[in-house]
């Protein structure tokens, strides 16, 4: 199960980026995750490794880190999700699709295992 499929589950949550813990969890039973009473913004925060305008490596590093994390700890390991949140928020959808294809074909330039 890839990260995208993980989010496709009926339950999804927003995470606190400093602790990586879920702040609010929404399930399909609830009306909408966009309810003003419970809504919370969650987006990757400033990372001192990538202080520049150019955020290309911020995206790429988190994509690699997520797949390395999942390869070692498995899909269900909660702390891996912070990498997933970061790279999905930063990387264009086209890039992620291309990299997923490359990984499946064994042609991704970074060793994941």
């Amino acid at each position: 199960m890839s990260g995208t499929e993980a989010a496709a589950n009926s339950t999804y949550s927003f995470r606190d980026h400093t602790t990586g813990k879920p702040t609010t969890t929404y399930s399909s039973a609830m009306s909408s995750p966009f309810d003003i009473k419970t809504f919370k913004f969650d987006t990757p925060q400033f990372d001192p490794r990538f202080p520049h305008v150019n955020q290309t490596k911020h995206c790429a590093q988190n994509y690699v880190d997520y797949h390395k994390c999942v390869a070692v700890k498995g899909e269900d390991f909660e702390p891996c999700q912070i990498f997933w949140k970061t790279f999905t928020s930063l990387c264009p959808v086209d890039w992620v699709e291309r990299w997923d294809d490359q990984r499946e074909a064994g042609k991704f330039p970074v060793k994941i295992e």
Partner: peptide, 15 residues
């Protein structure tokens, strides 16, 4: 435009 902090009901990014 991609609003990737959020996903739709099928888990795809809002774009």
């Amino acid at each position: 435009y991609e609003y990737s902090d959020f996903v739709n009901k099928t888990g795809e990014t809002l774009e």
